[in-house]
Design a protein around this nucleic acid. Sequence first.
DNA 1: CGGTATCCCCCGCGATACTG
DNA 2: CAGTATCGCGGGGGATACCG
Lengths: 240, 240
Amino acid sequence: MTRGYGQYCPLALAAELLTQRWTILIVSRLIDGCTTFNAIHRGVPRISPSLLSQRLTELAGAGIVEKRPAQGGSGPSYQLTPAGEDLAPVIEQMAIWGQFWAREMTKEDLDPAFLAWSMHTRMNVDAMPSGRTTLEFEFTGAPREFRRFWLISESGKIDMCLKHPGFEANLVVRSELRLFIETWRGFRDLRSELRSGNIRLDGPAPLRKQFPDWLLLSSLAPYRRKRPGRERSLPTRPRG
Amino acid sequence: MTRGYGQYCPLALAAELLTQRWTILIVSRLIDGCTTFNAIHRGVPRISPSLLSQRLTELAGAGIVEKRPAQGGSGPSYQLTPAGEDLAPVIEQMAIWGQFWAREMTKEDLDPAFLAWSMHTRMNVDAMPSGRTTLEFEFTGAPREFRRFWLISESGKIDMCLKHPGFEANLVVRSELRLFIETWRGFRDLRSELRSGNIRLDGPAPLRKQFPDWLLLSSLAPYRRKRPGRERSLPTRPRG
DNA sequence: CGGTATCCCCCGCGATACTG
DNA sequence: CAGTATCGCGGGGGATACCG
């Protein structure tokens, strides 16, 4: 009873599980298709490994996740059961509500590492050049050690690097972090911000021109925010 | 950050609020139409008043609830804002998932006080006699002091009493508690359980005959459970 | 890569009492 | 009815180190 609610109500029984700290985010990563421990961890970077392990065990106990032991060269994997897949609508509705109504982002929320993870799942690889293409992102308004990350597109796959990959980027993207995240979330228009110079590109003209088509933006971006916005308008920078 | 997740992700921002202990259940009661402090408390009986108060304040701070101070003879009231009403789909999906997949009920979950509250919101008053009708429920398998409660229908309204109302009941309903709750949740068929004698009625024949039409059952009862049931089959009792 | 083990702090929350 | 005030503890979970 320390964790439960002492009610048979299905909502209470569901909440007992889903309101555990981190649990919803972990399930969300599983729905996104992460299957290995570290893949999940990359999508929820601020949870400690021990707690992630504990949560996965709890989810397995509740019949939401099935753990497959390592076999045949591939490591252990975590799969959603049918019960776990049925959580998709719950998570989807909660995320939509968050897009509509959640509080303004604080500085704490603006984690470039999570932005990197997020972007690497939503790149339009089909629109990108067929060879290797390296994008460098550099943000102001972020802690020094996390100002930059790299997304590398190669043969239809995207790799993300938080450290310099060791070779030159083909295109560099510079922006203030909050503004870029607001754009990513759909609160601002990408092309407008590029035009106004709030987001700046450095690289060959053909790549600069294609760039807007590469970002798919957050999957929730089409849901227009309902919460009355105290959107801070940033001074626009004259075009080069 | 002790409460937050350090992510701008809308799901994380929503979860930050909604995974607070009790919060989801409180919002659910508000969606059910409870507006006063004590009405909400009756629907979430095991939360302490101080914590309920704190949660309502937090919900107001998040723009989900609006508190209207006492005025004109009526006490203070709590109303959902548009942001709060938009939580209905989240709660609904979570409740449906719970109905489909949540764990088996333990003894701790079988709280007759909550059953009483739950039933009093789902009685088919239109099908009940126009005068005052008092139903007494008596359960085996429940703690002594909570074995009984009363639902009183009068002029289209339902009152619930956890103590003897002081007058005779028109119809007495007896059952084992878990079996009755399983029936209420839609896991068992009410009429079958009446026929088999697992749920027994004591009172005039016309009332006994109408009784099955008075219970609307849980609003989630139509959703057929998906979790492989370890439904304990209770011995059926021969009809009177 | 894929996790365990351990330590320890802090605060969430349950319990109880009390007030306007 | 509609909440506040206070106290105390338990354990959740963050941080860090370590292992196979």
